[in-house]
Computed example of a mutant assay.
Amino acid sequence: MTYHRITLEAINLEAANPNDLAKFWAAVTGVEPSAGGDSVYLPPNGPGGFGMFFQPESEPRAARQVAHWDLTVPWGSRVAEVERLLGLGATHKWDVLDEVPHVQWTTLADPEGNLFCVAGHPPADHQGS
C-alpha cells in the first residue's frame, strides 16, 4: 500500500463578519485577503503554511468550540507575539507555562471568539528549567 504525505490546505471558518475576521487573520499571518462573493480567502504565508477561508455563518454559533489551532513561534518570542496579537484585537484567555517541559503556550481568542494557541518550544538544553 502506498501512503501519501497529507498536508493541511486550509482552515474553513464561518463568521458573523467574514471580511473583518479575515482582516484580523491577515494581520496575524502577514498575507493579503482575497474576497470572492460572500467569502474571503487568505493564502498560505509560505511553504508549509495553510490557507484560511471565511464564509458567512449558516446557523448560530455553537456554544462550545470543539477544535482550535496551535501556532508556533520561535523560542523566546511568544510573549512579544502575544502582545502583537492582543494589539490586533485578540483576547487573552490563559497561559500554560510549566505544565510540560517541551512547550509553553498562551491561549487567545480571535475577535469572534475562536480559540487559538501561540506556542514556543524550548531548545533541549532549556527543557525543564
Rank of each mutant, 00 (worst) to 15 (best):
V73W: 02
V31D: 08
W94P: 00
A80I: 01
H121T: 10
H4L: 14
P111W: 06
I6N: 13
P33R: 08
H126W: 07
M1W: 14
L13G: 00
P123W: 01
L86E: 12
V28C: 05
E59S: 13
V100M: 07
F24R: 06
D70G: 15
E57N: 03
T29Q: 10
P44M: 06
V103R: 05
L85A: 09
P74C: 06
S34Q: 12
A62C: 10
W105A: 01
V73Y: 02
A22K: 02
N12R: 12
D98Q: 13
G89Y: 15
A67F: 14
A119P: 03
W94G: 01
V118M: 01
G30V: 00
L97S: 12
S34V: 15
E59R: 14
H92N: 04
E83Y: 03
G30H: 02
A109D: 02
A90R: 00
F53M: 15
I11L: 12
P111T: 10
R64K: 13
V66W: 08
D20Q: 14
K23F: 13
L88N: 12
P56Y: 04
P18Y: 09
Q65W: 05
P56F: 04
M52V: 07
F116N: 07
G128P: 09
D125C: 04
E14T: 07
R84Q: 13
T29G: 05
A62E: 15
G87T: 05
P101L: 00
I6K: 13
I11V: 08
P60H: 08
F24C: 12
G128L: 12
P43F: 00
H102G: 04
D95K: 03
N19G: 00
E59F: 12
G113C: 10
T91K: 12
G48T: 04
V79C: 06
F50C: 09
P60Y: 05
T107R: 01
E9S: 05
A27H: 13
S77R: 03
A10G: 10
R78K: 12
P101V: 00
V96I: 09
V82T: 11
G30F: 02
R84P: 11
P111Y: 07
L13D: 00
D95Q: 04
H68D: 10
P122W: 07
L88W: 10
G48Y: 03
D38C: 02
N45D: 08
F24P: 08
K93G: 08
F54M: 11
G89E: 15
G36Y: 02
Y41G: 06
G37I: 05
E99G: 13
V73P: 05
N114K: 09
A35V: 04
G89N: 15
Q127R: 06
F116S: 04
H68S: 11
E81G: 01
P43R: 02
T91E: 10
G37L: 08
P122Y: 06
A10F: 13
P43E: 06
F50N: 08
S129Q: 14
E99Y: 14
W69G: 04
A22D: 06
V40M: 12
E112S: 08
V31N: 08
L88S: 12
P74Q: 07
T29D: 00
L13C: 03
A109G: 03
P122C: 03
Q104M: 10
